[in-house]
Amino acid sequence: MTFRRTLSYCTNVHPAESVEGIVEQLDRFSVPVREALGADVLGLGLWLPAPAARHLAADPAARRRFRAELTARGLVVQTLNAFPYRGFHEPVVKHSVYHPRWSEKARLDYTRDCATVLATLLPDDAEYGSISTLPLGWRTEWTTADDARATAALADLTDYLRTLARPVRLAVEPEPGCVLDTVADAVGWLAHRVDPEFVGLCLDTCHLAVSFADPAAAVGSIEDAGLRVYKVQASNALEAPAGESEALRRFIEPRYLHQVRARTADGAVHKADDLPAAYAELPADAPWRVHFHVPLHAEPQAPLRTTTDVLRTAVASLDGTPHIEVETYTWTVLPGGVVREDPITGIAEELRWAENNLEGVRA
C-alpha cells in the first residue's frame, strides 16, 4: 500500500526527550504502524522536544545520521509539531504547554532549531516543509508589549527561513483559550503582519470544531486574507448534545487541558477553560464541544459523538494539498471503552480512515 507522503501521524503521542529516545520510539511504534498498514513508506509529523532539536540543529552530522535512521526504517518527515516545547507527557501538562510564548526568545530559538532540522530531513522532492506552532500564548498572560515582541520574533524567524536551502513554512495553530482563540483571531492578527510566503496557518480541526465556526467559511476567510493553510491537524472533538453534558464527566483527567464551548439557541458561544469548570460555568441545556482529541475512527458511547463532519468539510474546502497530520495524543488518557485497539493498531486504523475518507489524501 502506498500512502501520500503528505499524510502523517504526529509523534507527540510518544514520550521521548532525547534523540536516542526518539529513535527508540520509532522502533517501538512507528515502524510497527507502517508494517501494520503494509506501507512502503510512512509519513511522520515529528515532535522534537527542545533539547533534541537543539542537539540536532547544532550538529550537521547528527542531522544526517538522524535522516539516515528515518530512511532505513521507511519513515519520512515533511512536517514538525513544534507546539509542545518539552515535557508533553508529564503527569500534569495543562497550561505549561503554552510556554515559552512567542514573546520569549526561547520560543524563537526552539522554532529556528526545528527549521534547521527540518531543512535537512525533508525528502528531496518535497514542495516544502511545515512547522506548526502555538497561537502566541495563553490569553490571560498576554500584553500589548508581548504583541510587539511576538511580531518582531516572527519577523526574525521569517528572515531565517529565507536563508535555508530548503523551503520551510511556519503554521500558526489557533486554539481555544489562547491569544489567537479562533481562525478569525488568527487571520486578523496575521494578515498584514507576516509574509504569507513563509507564515500561514495550521488548521486543527478539533480546535475549529470546538469554536463552533463554520468550517467552509473559516477556510474561505483564510484564503480571502491572502494567507495559506500550510498544515492540517486532522482531529475530532467530543460533542455532547443539549442536555447530555453529564456524559462527558468520565473524560475528566489531570494531564491535559480540555477547553469547552457551548452554543445556545441565539448563536452565542459560551466558554470554559477546562472540562471540570464547565459544569459550573456553561448552560447545561446547550450542546457542548470539548477539546479532547478522539481517534478519527472511534465512535464514543451514545449520547456522545465526534465532530467528523467538521473535519471532512474543512479538508474538502481547502485549496491545494497542505500537509495532513493525524494528531491524536490522548491515547493514554482515554477512558475505557472509547477504543479497543492498542496504540499501534489504533494509529494504523486512524491513518486508514484518513486515507479512505479525506479528500486529497489518497495517493
Rank of each mutant, 00 (worst) to 15 (best):
R4S: 15
R4G: 14
S8H: 05
S8F: 00
A16P: 06
E20D: 15
G21Q: 07
V23G: 13
L26Q: 10
D27V: 08
F29T: 09
S30V: 09
S30N: 06
S30P: 10
V31L: 15
R34C: 09
E35I: 05
E35W: 04
A39Y: 12
V41P: 01
G43H: 05
P49G: 06
A50W: 00
A62V: 08
R63S: 09
E69S: 13
G74Y: 04
G74E: 07
Q78D: 10
F83S: 01
F83P: 01
F88Y: 14
P91M: 09
V92Y: 04
K94G: 08
H95N: 09
S96T: 14
Y98M: 13
H99L: 15
W102K: 04
E104P: 07
R107C: 05
Y110R: 00
D113M: 00
L118Y: 07
A119G: 14
A119S: 15
D125R: 13
A126I: 11
E127N: 08
E127T: 13
Y128H: 15
G129R: 03
G129A: 11
S130Y: 02
I131Y: 01
T133I: 12
T133P: 07
L136P: 00
E141R: 11
E141N: 11
E141G: 07
A145R: 13
D146G: 05
R149M: 06
A152T: 12
A155N: 13
A155L: 10
D156W: 00
T158G: 10
Y160F: 15
L164M: 12
R169M: 03
A171R: 08
V172D: 00
E173Q: 13
E173N: 08
E175T: 09
G177H: 11
V179I: 13
D181V: 01
D185L: 07
D185P: 07
V187M: 02
L190G: 00
G200M: 01
L201M: 09
L201V: 02
C202A: 08
T205F: 03
H207K: 05
H207Y: 07
L208W: 01
L208Y: 00
V210Q: 03
S211E: 09
A216E: 15
A217T: 15
V219F: 01
G226T: 10
K231S: 11
V232W: 01
Q233F: 02
A234W: 04
L238I: 05
L238C: 04
A240E: 01
P241N: 08
P241L: 07
A242N: 07
E246V: 06
R249K: 14
R250P: 02
H258S: 15
Q259D: 12
V260L: 12
R263K: 14
T264P: 01
K271Q: 11
D273Q: 11
D274N: 15
L275Q: 05
A278Y: 07
A284S: 13
A286L: 09
P287S: 09
W288D: 03
F292Q: 11
H293A: 12
L296I: 06
R305P: 10
R305Y: 04
T307H: 10
T308K: 06
D309L: 02
R312K: 15
G320H: 13
P322N: 08
E327F: 08
T330F: 05
L334P: 02
L334K: 00
G337V: 13
V339T: 14
I344C: 12
I344E: 04
I347M: 15
E355P: 00
N356Y: 08
N356D: 15
N357P: 10
G360T: 05
V361L: 09
V361Y: 02
V361C: 09
R362K: 10
A363Q: 08
A363M: 04
